[in-house]
C-alpha cells in the first residue's frame, strides 16, 4: 500500500517538497537581514523595551523597517488549507470521477484498509511538511517575537504545533468532501470554504476563551500598547464601569474643548478609564496545545466518519 500511495501521490509529494524547499530559501534570504539588523542595533539589550532609554524608538524603527516582509509572512496561514485542496479533496473525488474506484474497491484489499493506509501515510507526510513550515516561520519571526510575543493571531496562526494540526484537519475535510461531492473541483471549493469557516470561527469565538482573559484597568483614556499580549477588548468605561460609546466620548471631548480644558485630563476627572481584556504571552503553549487538540480531534472525527461512509457508499 505504501507503494500505491507513493505512486498515486508522488506528484503532490514532490510538489510539496519543492514548495517547502522554495519557502526555506525565501525564509533564509528574507530572514537573514532581519537578524543582522537585530544584532547590529543590539536590540536584545532592549528587552523589555523599557529597559533602556531610547529603546522605544529603536524598536519602533526596527519593526517598521521590515513591515512588508511581515505582511507577506502572514500569507503562510493559507498553506495548510492548500493541503486539503490539492491532496485531500482529490483523494476520493478523482477515483469516483474517473470510475477507478470500481477497480480499487473490488480488489482483495478492503475499502477500509485501502482508505486508512492512504490517509495515514498522507497524514504523516502532511505532519512532517507542516512541522517544517512551522519551524521556518518560528525561525523567521524570532526577532519579532522577542518584542511582540506570539500569542496574537499573526504569530500564533503560523507558529508551533497548531500548524500540523491545521494540516491534518484540512486533509480530513478534503477527503470527506471528495467522498460526499464526488467531483474534484466541487470538493476543493467545499474544502476551502469549510476549512476557512472552521478556522476563523474557532479563532474568533473559541480561542479568546481557552483561559479566562486577564482584565487590566488602565488609567488614562488613550489606548496604550501591551507588548507580548493578545488584546481582546480595549474599552473606555465610566466610573460605574459601563462602556462609553464613541458618540458620548466625542461629545465629552467637544465639551472639554469649549470649556478650554485639556480633554484627557477632563475625561480622567470624570472617572473615565479603560478596561483592557487580554491574553498574556505566557499562555502561548497552553493555547497552542488546546487549539491543536481541537483540530486533531476534529480531523480524527472526520476521518472516522469518512471510513464509516466509504464502507457504505453505493457507487
Amino acid at each position: 500500500m505504501a507503494w500505491l500511495t507513493w505512486r498515486q501521490h508522488r506528484a503532490q509529494l514532490l510538489g510539496g517538497l519543492f514548495l517547502i524547499g522554495g519557502l526555506a530559501l525565501a525564509t533564509l534570504l528574507s530572514g537573514l537581514p532581519v537578524r543582522n539588523a537585530y544584532h547590529a542595533q543590539a536590540l536584545s539589550a532592549c528587552l523589555p523595551p523599557s529597559a533602556r532609554s531610547g529603546c522605544d524608538l529603536i524598536v519602533r524603527h526596527f519593526e517598521s523597517e521590515f513591515v512588508t516582509r511581515r505582511q507577506l509572512s502572514r500569507a503562510l496561514v493559507v498553506l495548510p488549507a492548500l493541503l486539503g485542496l490539492f491532496v485531500g479533496a482529490p483523494l476520493l473525488a478523482r477515483e469516483l470521477e474517473h470510475g477507478t474506484h470500481q477497480l480499487a474497491w473490488t480488489q482483495g484489499l478492503t475499502r477500509r484498509r485501502w482508505l486508512l493506509s492512504k490517509a495515514s501515510l498522507l497524514g504523516v507526510a502532511s505532519l512532517l511538511g507542516a512541522c517544517a513550515l512551522a519551524g521556518l516561520a518560528m525561525w523567521w519571526r524570532q526577532p519579532f517575537d522577542a518584542f511582540e510575543g506570539r500569542i496574537s493571531p499573526r504569530a500564533f496562526d503560523i507558529e508551533g504545533i497548531v500548524v500540523p494540526a491545521y494540516a491534518l484537519f484540512a486533509l480530513a475535510v478534503g477527503i470527506l468532501a471528495g467522498l460526499l461531492l464526488r467531483r474534484t473541483v466541487a470538493a476543493m471549493t467545499a474544502t476551502a470554504i469549510v476549512f476557512a469557516g472552521v478556522r476563523l470561527g474557532i479563532e474568533r469565538l473559541l480561542r479568546p476563551h481557552y483561559l479566562t482573559p486577564l482584565r487590566v484597568s488602565a488609567e488614562g483614556t488613550i489606548p496604550s500598547s501591551y507588548p507580548s499580549t493578545w488584546v481582546l477588548h480595549d474599552r473606555l468605561v465610566d466610573a460605574s464601569g459601563s462602556p462609553i460609546t464613541a458618540g458620548r466620548e466625542d461629545l465629552a471631548i467637544l465639551h472639554a474643548q469649549q470649556a478650554r480644558l485639556e480633554p484627557h485630563a477632563y475625561l480622567s476627572s470624570l472617572g473615565w478609564h479603560r478596561i483592557v481584556e487580554l491574553q498574556p504571552g505566557s499562555r502561548f503553549w497552553p493555547f497552542q496545545g488546546i487549539e491543536a487538540g481541537i483540530f486533531v480531534a476534529l480531523a480524527l472525527l472526520l476521518l472516522v466518519a469518512t471510513v464509516w461512509l466509504v464502507r457504505r457508499t453505493p457507487s
Binding site: M1, L4, R7, H98, G99, T100, Q107
Partner: peptide
C-alpha cells in the same frame, strides 16, 4: 471484475498497473 469501460489509472504504466494488482491482492 472488469467494470464497464475497463477503468484503469491512466497515468500508471502497464508495469505500475500490474504492481497495483499485486499490492492489493494476496
Amino acid at each position: 471484475f472488469v467494470p464497464q469501460g475497463a477503468p484503469l489509472y491512466r497515468s500508471f504504466t502497464v508495469a505500475d498497473t500490474v504492481a497495483f494488482a499485486r499490492a492489493t491482492n494476496a
